[in-house]
Design a protein around this nucleic acid. Structure first.
Lengths: 186, 186
DNA sequence: GTCTATACTGCGATAGAC
DNA sequence: GTCTATCGCAGTATAGAC
């Protein structure tokens, strides 16, 4: 049951962090949502820095798995790109939750160096995966590209994250769709 | 001299907010940077909510003016788009400062409704301006578009803001250039 | 593993002297 | 307009009982 509490805390903290940023949630918030006292959280995560690192680790692994699943279930580059956009769209929670990487990026100065590095590592992993996607697109001809796969990948990641921001700002999924419409029309 | 202090405080607060978000700076930070006591700040801005509203108002007006200046000094749509990207690039402060609208979006839940509305209004203003830019691009043929001007505008704003995030995450202007390379190559 | 109790720090905000 | 002083609250973190 100890492990369940820890996972439960990670779930609650992830939602909170992705909704309000690293500075926007406290141990008191987590305690209330988890139904335990805030002092008890320190048993599972000694400091908030430790918690933030655990969040990024789990998020990185989780998204990496999603990418692997997309590869396994979608053959063409166009299908994979569409699946990636759908994943980002579903990750929004109706405009409530951003990508953890985006949420942490704004709170940058409150994070320990270790976590900042994890953000960069996450971005690097995503860029590499999307680059490979566009390389496939060049081969199978299902995506019309105008530049190198790497340039397309950086632009795609920026657009997806910017679309997340738009939906969060407007609190409306439609903003995400408007911003990504172009991405999917090729 | 009173007005100077107020403007000075706005300048300091804007940099702080764009670097670390709304939750990431305090009256104590501003006081130290301005060389006065934190209690004195309340004379100029009674509450932090009032300060945040003033910041958004000034930012909105300032960016709107930049857009007007771009129209006055750049004739073709392609030139105007390039000038807009350059403005965003310069606004980065080497990866330190985001667009205020982006920085506030993540701190959404700490903001009063009035300021949330100002964020939406700012985004609406920008989208309208960029839409007009792409409408011109259709006429003068200096930008190759693949969709409606409005869809292009939403995608462009998302990409610019996403590129800002990328540069902030990596603390490197090169990340902005990589993400916007595609935008400018058309 | 979770609790109560508490230490310490920093926050936004206010009162009132100058 | 700016100051000192202080309030009340919330933040992370720790000690020690159970």
């Amino acid at each position: 049951m100890a492990q369940d509490t820890k996972t439960n805390l990670l779930d609650i903290a992830e939602t909170a962090a992705r909704s309000r940023g690293f500075d926007g949630f406290s141990y008191a918030d987590l305690a209330e949502a988890a139904g335990i006292r805030k002092a008890s959280i320190h048993y599972h995560f000694a400091t908030k820095a430790v918690l933030s690192a655990a969040l990024m680790d789990r998020y990185h692994a989780s998204v990496e798995q999603v990418c692997a699943d997309i590869e396994a279930t979608h053959q063409s580059a166009a299908d994979r790109l569409a699946a990636l956009a759908t994943f980002y769209r579903n990750a929004l929670g109706g405009g409530e939750t951003l990508c953890l990487c985006v949420a942490f990026t704004i709170s940058r100065d409150s994070l320990v160096d270790e976590v900042k590095d994890k953000i960069v590592a996450f971005r690097s992993m995503m860029t590499r995966w999307i680059t490979a996607l566009f390389e496939l697109g060049k081969q199978d001809g299902t995506i019309s590209t105008t530049s190198t796969p790497e340039a397309e990948a950086h632009a795609t990641l920026a657009t997806l994250e910017g679309a997340h921001l738009a939906a969060h700002a407007e609190h409306d999924l439609a903003a995400f769709d408007k911003a990504t419409k172009l991405l999917l029309a090729r």
